[in-house]
């Protein structure tokens, strides 16, 4: 035996394909090819809208799953960006509409949403658990009524209409395929950022704060500052979704940021699961499909009952949402040798 045999082996470097994981590759391929099989309706009203709601729910997952802070104000934060698009961009409500180009209005809206998010967070981090939910619900409710009653800035009840998605690179980005791919790109970027960030130093810090804020102070961390920064990051995601929402609907009104939609985001996140960033997107697809087709099944007056019942069943059967069901199902697949177990480290 040669000496070389005793040399410790270098750590095996995984290829990018292995690091990405077979699940991500298959999902990515499906989403990229989805426009080939989907109608325009399924591309935007189901696909694009699911990804927008999924991003808002992802911003909640970041706060709740990693930071232990459940917020009901995520749709409000998305609304900030949407109103910026309406007020600083173009609208046909004859109120404001400063005509800023999209490439200034959109980043400005996202940044302002993140600042508002950090401000909401700065108020909310003084509380824990149910009190955080109550404070953020109060912020969401107050914002809704303020937007509804203030005509100077928010144009009151009707809000703003005639918001147009940009025309750039030879494409009108509200057409079904471009809009779908725009939503997919934003959602994929947000998903990848959260997944990567969960194992970053900041991500570990946030999870440690969730587990034991007192101990984090005792090892030198400014707990409040880290929590507020998590709200800022969450606001970037919700703000991006807010811009897409404005372009998707072509309008923004107080109804978009009402208490009902605020609670919907929480329902989406819980149905999907808060333990992994894919959960909010799963929840969004399920809720959007139900919102769209429940009317055909049980009629217009009962579709919310159907969604409510489905929510109850999910929470009852699997507190971790659809992700929890998947986790239960997955080991049996492994035993059968259908696929190799992922190493769990993610991307």
């Amino acid at each position: 035996m040669t000496l070389a045999a005793f040399t410790p082996a270098a750590p095996v470097r995984k290829s990018w394909f292995e690091r990405l994981g077979i699940g991500h590759v298959l999902l990515g391929a499906f989403l990229l090819l989805y426009p080939l099989i989907a109608s325009d309706f399924f591309l935007t009203t189901i696909g694009g809208y699911s990804m927008i709601l999924g991003m808002i729910a992802l911003s909640l997952m970041l706060l709740a799953g990693y930071g232990g802070m459940v917020s009901l104000a995520q749709i409000t934060i998305a609304g900030v960006a949407a109103y910026v698009i309406a007020i600083f961009g173009e609208n046909n409500s004859n109120v404001h509409g400063f005509g800023w180009p999209w490439w200034i209005a959109a980043p400005f809206g996202i940044f302002l949403a993140a600042l508002f998010s950090a401000m909401f967070g700065w108020i909310a981090v003084r509380t824990e658990g149910i009190y955080t939910i109550m404070i953020t619900l109060a912020i969401a409710t107050a914002s809704f009524y303020f937007a509804q009653q203030n005509y100077t800035l928010f144009n009151g009840f009707p809000g703003y209409s005639g918001l147009r998605a940009p025309e750039a690179f030879g494409l009108y980005w509200r057409e079904p395929r471009p809009f779908y791919y725009l939503c997919l790109a934003c959602a994929a970027l947000a998903y990848a950022a959260v997944l990567y960030g969960s194992r970053s130093t900041f991500g570990l810090t946030l999870q440690a704060i969730r587990d034991n804020p007192r101990r984090m102070r005792a090892i030198g961390y400014d707990v409040t500052a880290h929590k507020v920064f998590a709200w800022f990051l969450s606001g970037l995601i919700a703000g991006t979704a807010g811009v897409l929402l404005a372009w998707f609907n072509g309008r923004i009104s107080p109804g978009t940021i009402a208490v009902g939609p605020a609670i919907n985001i929480l329902i989406i996140a819980i149905i999907g699961g808060l333990r992994h960033p894919i959960g909010p997107f799963l929840g969004a697809v399920v809720v959007v499909l139900m919102q769209t087709f429940a009317i055909d099944i049980v009629g217009a007056e009962r579709f919310n009952t159907l969604i409510g019942l489905f929510f109850l069943v999910i929470v009852f059967v699997s507190p971790d949402g659809i992700l929890g069901l998947w986790e239960r199902f997955k080991p049996s697949q492994d035993r059968d040798g259908w696929h190799s177990r992922p190493d769990g480290t993610g991307v």
Binding site: T201, T205, A208, N212, R214, A218, G220, Y221, H226
Partner: peptide, 24 residues
């Protein structure tokens, strides 16, 4: 007073990082 959902190494790493200049 520990971080029950973190690994041992991650916990100690955070403690080391918490008192360093580049904690963020």
């Amino acid at each position: 007073q520990l971080f029950t959902n973190l690994s041992v190494l991650d916990s100690i790493y955070l403690a080391c990082r918490g008192v360093s200049r580049r904690r963020f």
